[in-house]
Design a protein around this nucleic acid. Structure first.
Lengths: 264, 264
DNA sequence: AAATTGAGTTCCAAATAATGGAAAATCGGG
DNA sequence: CCCGATTTTCCATTATTTGGAACTCAATTT
């Protein structure tokens, strides 16, 4: 009923690709940008750039504030909010995340691998509500987060190799793994253990333990983690959660298979 | 230094516009869609549609799941998360929202008017964390939310008239205002009072009180609100918060002027 | 087993939209 | 009120998109 070819990394995305590159540029900037700032970075002729920005503004993807400043548009929020709310993987995982949160009392994350980053799909906190969006949706490095490392650990060797070679490492903390070799060694260890630690590798004072969620067809790679402050969470304590975490991850994978398999 | 013409509703957005319409179509759907489903709704020839979808997938704006199903892509989350995190208006308002939350103990919302909807930019809850994204970023109707109605109340007459005439009303609850006339009457009353109630007009059992945040140049319209369950919040109780709410809204507006005025 | 149906994918000449260099309009400050 | 910096408009050229039809593949029917 449904033929499937290799759609992936093929060819160009034409005009859309150019627009998205521009959108990304503005969205990644620290602050709203002036036309000239963008011109310098975008490497396109004035006329072209001006029209492209005009289109992005007209579509609500960018905002054109007083003073001639371009900033990310709010339509992005609406689009994202909708896609998040209906994301099947997240919906399936949610009750399991809640369960983990209650068991541990700490913050639980759900993330998936996209390109060379981890995107957090959900986050369940214990106490005070506080900032959420600041994590959900965030693209974080694979090589220094628990979820990232477990995601790597379930990739086939060739994909893992290719991905790791393409990374550029940044030393967020003294513990961050900053070489392909160190990372590959760590991944080998994680494959054996079936779970990973984040030993304050991304943020000082923050530790976590993570387990992979794997589909045998390799159609996707993600993970769950339990995160908290180092003063409260020793590695021993985290390790106690490894077993239930692995089990929960397996439950989520099972639930996915049920959902995706039969009823398509 | 910065010329400013009326950029608005002018002309087309060419190829980008078509792509966005398609993205919106898939994002608004209840569930992932098959090619044929989209074909029926998009009103475009097969070949064209196929290439456009391919581009959207290649850009990560859509996902192409097994079984040939198209679903919203995760890149949207990343883009939105970034734009939210840096949104100046939200950053400025946040401490004030927190203050309101503490004063009332109830949930506080911040929203702005975009086109004919309210987009929630932030939400601060009292107790249990629970779902956040399910509100932030959501586009909600103007005519039956506190923030929506106060936003309308600060529009110039002609803009108000035009916007209200273009609305299509849906009766969410028995209390929902479902005619342009009723809404305009309500707005007139809100203009006098300087604040608005939501008397279970959007969700049964949910009330709120809202105040407008206004820039005299009309460059934007938004508001703050305090929301909670009807059994706990009588209109009298809500009215007690009207004064501090109005004051806070004014503080936010002042802070905006400081930020936008001098330092551009 | 062969034929048919329904769904998705590919192709390419014609139509449309994007490009980009340069000129014109506009703002802010001295 | 004029100057220099910045943004916006213009339009002939060029590149991309368009869309009808043909093709592929898998599942269902004859």
């Amino acid at each position: 009923m449904a033929p499937r070819k290799d759609i992936s990394r093929e060819s160009e995305t034409g005009t859309l690709g150019k627009s998205m590159a521009l959108l990304e540029l503005v969205t990644h900037a620290e602050r709203p940008m002036r036309f000239t700032d963008i011109l310098a970075l975008a490497g396109q002729p004035r006329g072209t750039l001006h029209r492209q920005l005009g289109h992005l503004v007209a579509e609500g993807l960018l905002e054109f504030a007083v003073g001639g400043l371009y900033a990310p548009g709010l339509r992005l929020l609406d689009l994202a909010s909708r896609s998040w709310a209906k994301n099947e993987f997240r919906l399936i995982a949610e009750p399991h995340l809640r369960h983990l949160q209650q068991m541990s009392g700490e913050t639980v994350h759900l993330g998936v691998l996209r390109e060379t980053s981890i995107i957090y799909l959900d986050k369940i906190e214990g106490q005070q509500s506080v900032r959420m969006y600041s994590q959900i949706g965030n693209a974080s490095p694979v090589y220094c987060t628990g979820v990232g490392k477990v995601a790597l650990s379930i990739l086939p060797d060739d994909a893992l190799e290719a991905l790791v070679r393409s990374l550029s490492f940044h030393s967020y903390t003294p513990q961050t793994l900053v070489s392909a070799e160190a990372l590959l060694t760590e991944v080998a260890a994680i494959r054996k253990a079936g779970f990973a630690f984040d030993r304050e590798e991304h943020e000082p004072g923050i530790r976590c333990v993570a387990a992979p969620i794997r589909m045998e067809d390799g159609s996707f790679a993600g993970g769950v983690s339990i995160t908290g402050p180092a003063y409260r969470l020793t590695l021993e304590r985290l390790e106690e959660w490894a077993a239930p975490l692995k089990q929960t991850a397996e439950c989520i994978a099972d639930a996915m298979r049920v959902r995706l398999g039969p009823r398509r």
